[in-house]
Every structure is written in C-alpha cells, then in structure tokens.
Amino acid sequence: MTTAIPVAPADTRRHELAAFLRSRRERISPEQVGLPPTGRRRTPGLRREEVALLAAVGVTWYTWLEQGRAIQVSTQVLDSVARTLLLDRNERAHLFALAGVEDPVQVMDCPTITPAVRLVLDQLSPLPAAAINRRYDILAYNRTYTGIVGDLDAMPPEERNVLWLAFTDSYFASVLVDREEARASIVARFRAAMADHGSERAWTDLLKRLCQTSPEFEALWARHEVEGLGNGMKRFLIPGAGLLRFDYTNLWLGPNGGTRVVTYTPADDATRAHLESLGDSAESGGPE
C-alpha cells in the first residue's frame, strides 16, 4: 500500500529523497557499520556500492535511487536501507514519506506525559480536561474530567480509552447525551486516523476488541465513514447536576495530529454552576 504525499510533485520528492540519502550516507564511517578502514577517501562516509552491499540491493538500483530516478521502491528495500544508514525514528519516517511508501514498522504513540502537561491539566480545573492521543487513549486528566467519564483511576489502562468507554457499559456511555451521533462521529474519526497506523499492533488490537465487544461499533466500522478531528459540543446528563452542556476544544501538543489536550468549557450558566460539584464528586470517588 502506498501513501500519497501531497506536499510536492513526484519529481521534486525524488530529488529530495536522493539528497537525503546522500547526506545520511556521507555521515557514516566504514567502521560504524563493521567495514574495515580503506585509507583516505575522496569523499566522506560510505560509498554507494558499500551501502548497496550492506543493504543487499543492487549497486545500479541504489545508484539510480540516489540520482532521483523514477524507480519502484518496496518497503522491504527501504527498511534495509534505513537500517544500513543507521536512521533514527524521525529520519526513517522522513525516508518513507519521501519515497511515498507506508512504513510497516510499528510506531507506538509515546504514553509519557510531561510534568508540564500534568500541571496545565491541573491548572485548567475546574474545567474538565484530559490529554488524549490519536488512538483515543486517555493519557492524563484532571479531577473534574472524571466527573463526566467516571473513575479512571479504578480502570485498567487498556480501558482508559474514549472509544472503549463510548461503546461499553461505562459511566461515560450512560451519561452521554446524543449517544448515537457521538458514537458515529468518533468511529469515523478513528477510521481516518487509522489510515496512518494500519500496521501497528496497538491499533489493530483495539479495533479487534471493539468489534468483538460491541456489535454497534462493528456495524459503524463497516460503513467506512471518515471524519476529521474538530471542536464541537457535548451534552451530559449527570446525576445530581442535570443536563450539562460543554464546548470541547482540541489543543495540540505536537505536529501531525498526535496527542492533544481536550478541554471542556461550559456552554451555559447552569453548566458553569455545576463545575465545582463535578470536581467534588470525582474527588470523593467518582460519580455514583
């Protein structure tokens, strides 16, 4: 499967790929890849034939690749070249993007949330807020957020996921108003995000669990609807507080639509008046 790169025409992208490969090749000494030193060289780094030998590809093919010629590139060959050139994660992603090929290697979202992000979440209280990745894992949250999704501390990590909570017998599902619309939207957004992560085990495992657990999710998934992430409004019918309306806003923590902080701000005075009670409910053990 290939992924189109909209940022540049194919010929420009090939020239960028060629220049990138040359720059990575020239920074590596023979000793770094287990080759014996061969005395003084006219140019720094490895020779093209040495890269081809170590990557188990033809010298002519690799030369054409560095010359920016229009040749077919497979994931297996790119993987071998990436390993030979000792590319790190970001460089590898750049290589595959320039080649217009999907990287089959699993790239896991980093679950680590910095102390600074946790402080931001705490300072946002009493506004409900959480850090959520593209897979909808809830990575961190403040106490008010648990007032609308339930006691996350009591849940195993694999269940701290907005998709899982929306399609299982959870507190979040029970208080979420406009449930059908919200479920259809989150499935469409999950499908759109998964286009970049179809070979990753964490994503496919979550998809399998959801399909096995929820016939409604499976039916929505089969519709192949896609939708981009955006801001909007959610309504919750909270015991003891009534109908609460929140505008939710995504604040991105990095590029490429990765982890984001989602904040919920009151959409009316009644909701604003119950913010503190949401926090008190969460602090005392979560909603009853």
Rank of each mutant, 00 (worst) to 15 (best):
178 D>T: 06
140 A>S: 04
144 T>R: 14
119 L>Q: 11
176 L>K: 15
137 D>T: 09
131 A>Q: 01
113 I>Q: 03
171 Y>P: 10
152 L>T: 07
141 Y>T: 14
114 T>K: 02
179 R>Q: 10
144 T>V: 02
136 Y>M: 11
159 E>H: 14
130 A>T: 01
113 I>C: 03
137 D>C: 08
116 A>G: 06
133 N>C: 04
139 L>D: 04
156 P>K: 02
166 A>Q: 12
126 P>W: 00
135 R>A: 11
126 P>I: 01
115 P>H: 01
164 W>D: 01
123 Q>A: 13
160 R>N: 12
125 S>M: 04
162 V>H: 08
154 A>L: 10
146 T>Q: 15
156 P>Q: 07
172 F>Y: 14
130 A>N: 03
121 L>E: 00
118 R>N: 06
177 V>Q: 15
127 L>P: 10
167 F>G: 08
129 A>N: 03
116 A>T: 11
114 T>Y: 00
175 V>N: 11
160 R>I: 14
159 E>R: 15
177 V>G: 06
124 L>N: 08
161 N>D: 03
133 N>P: 00
138 I>G: 05
146 T>F: 07
122 D>M: 06
148 I>M: 09
147 G>N: 09
129 A>D: 09
170 S>D: 09
125 S>I: 00
124 L>M: 08
153 D>A: 08
140 A>H: 00
158 E>Q: 15
123 Q>Y: 10
130 A>S: 04
165 L>M: 07
123 Q>H: 02
134 R>H: 10
117 V>H: 01
165 L>G: 00
147 G>S: 05
182 A>T: 13
149 V>D: 12
177 V>R: 15
115 P>E: 04
174 S>M: 06
176 L>F: 04
143 R>M: 09
143 R>T: 11
170 S>T: 05
140 A>K: 04
179 R>T: 11
166 A>K: 13
148 I>K: 13
120 V>K: 03
115 P>A: 09
168 T>M: 12
147 G>Y: 02
179 R>F: 01
136 Y>V: 09
172 F>I: 11
173 A>M: 09
174 S>K: 15
141 Y>Q: 12
117 V>S: 02
177 V>F: 14
153 D>V: 11
112 T>I: 13
114 T>Q: 05
133 N>L: 00
153 D>C: 08
158 E>T: 13
115 P>D: 06
174 S>Q: 15
117 V>C: 02
173 A>I: 05
159 E>Q: 15
146 T>V: 08
136 Y>K: 12
157 P>N: 09
132 I>V: 15
136 Y>L: 14
118 R>C: 09
178 D>N: 13
136 Y>G: 01
173 A>F: 03
125 S>C: 11
118 R>M: 10
146 T>P: 10
160 R>L: 07
170 S>V: 02
134 R>K: 07
136 Y>R: 13
132 I>N: 02
172 F>L: 13
137 D>Q: 05
161 N>A: 08
114 T>E: 03
123 Q>K: 10
122 D>P: 06
